[in-house]
Simulated scan of single mutants.
Amino acid sequence: MLAPAPRDQRPTAEPQSLDVALSELTDAYLESLQLLERMHRLMLDLVKDEFERLHRGDLTPVQAMILYNLGEAEVSAGELRSRGMYQGSNVSYNLKKLVAMGYVHHERCDMDRRSVRVRLTAEGQAVRDMVRRLFIRHAEGLAMSGVLEDPPLDSVNLQSRRIERFWSEQIRYIY
């Protein structure tokens, strides 16, 4: 009769190789989280530098990104928060500032007076166009350098959307 294997030993090499693969995937995922955070900060720095170059010191990079993400739409502050990369309290504060500076028009919703709908003014649209031109310039430079080809950016975006969907499901699962 065979003695049972000790609990801390694995019976085959297969689970160990699975553990190694899982560890490598985990390391790659953690690195991608760090890259996302750094890229977001760099994007804000790029917007800041562009606005300094254009002598536009009246807006913060986050405010410029709110204008960019608002685009042609008329949305509530909550919808804007879910579309962008902002904390809830920051959206409210920044929207008040943007309204006061004349970049955003707001009005209370007829159906729910607690809800405020916002849209860009002509001045806000001009800022959005500046940010859009900056991003187009970057896209053209990246395309010319070949950076967007390997792996193809659409594959990277697909993977990012899958991660975004996973995170969203995790949040819904908690509540």
Rank of each mutant, 00 (worst) to 15 (best):
M1E: 09
A5G: 08
A5N: 09
A5Q: 13
A5I: 12
P6N: 10
R7C: 05
Q9L: 15
Q9W: 14
Q9G: 00
R10H: 09
P11V: 09
A13Y: 03
E14S: 04
P15D: 02
Q16V: 13
S17H: 14
D19M: 09
L22R: 11
S23Y: 09
S23A: 10
E24S: 10
L25A: 11
L25Q: 10
T26H: 14
D27L: 12
A28T: 10
A28H: 13
Y29C: 04
L30H: 07
E31V: 09
S32H: 11
L33C: 11
L33K: 14
Q34P: 00
L35V: 08
L35M: 10
R38Y: 07
H40A: 12
M43D: 10
L44C: 09
L46T: 02
V47Y: 01
K48W: 14
K48R: 14
D49P: 01
E50K: 15
F51C: 05
R53A: 12
L54F: 06
H55T: 08
H55Q: 14
H55Y: 13
R56A: 08
G57L: 08
D58K: 12
D58I: 06
P61E: 01
V62L: 08
Q63R: 11
A64K: 04
A64I: 01
A64R: 03
A64S: 03
M65R: 02
I66V: 06
Y68D: 05
Y68M: 04
N69A: 00
G71Q: 02
E72F: 09
E74S: 11
E74I: 02
E74N: 02
A77W: 05
S82A: 09
S82Q: 11
R83L: 02
R83V: 03
Q87I: 05
S92M: 11
Y93R: 15
L95V: 15
K96D: 13
K96M: 07
K96N: 12
K96Y: 07
K97D: 09
L98Q: 00
M101R: 10
M101K: 15
H106C: 05
R108K: 14
R108N: 08
R108G: 06
C109M: 12
M111E: 10
R113P: 10
R113A: 14
R114C: 02
R114E: 03
V118H: 14
V118L: 07
T121Q: 03
A122T: 11
E123R: 13
G124Y: 01
Q125A: 10
A126H: 06
A126C: 01
R128G: 07
V131E: 01
R133G: 00
L134R: 00
A139N: 08
A139S: 07
A143V: 04
M144T: 11
V147E: 13
D154N: 11
S155K: 15
V156L: 15
V156G: 01
V156S: 03
V156Q: 03
N157G: 03
N157T: 08
N157Q: 14
R161D: 13
R161I: 05
I163N: 04
R165P: 00
F166V: 10
Q170D: 05
Q170P: 02
Q170C: 13
Q170F: 13
I171T: 05
R172V: 02
R172L: 09
I174Y: 13
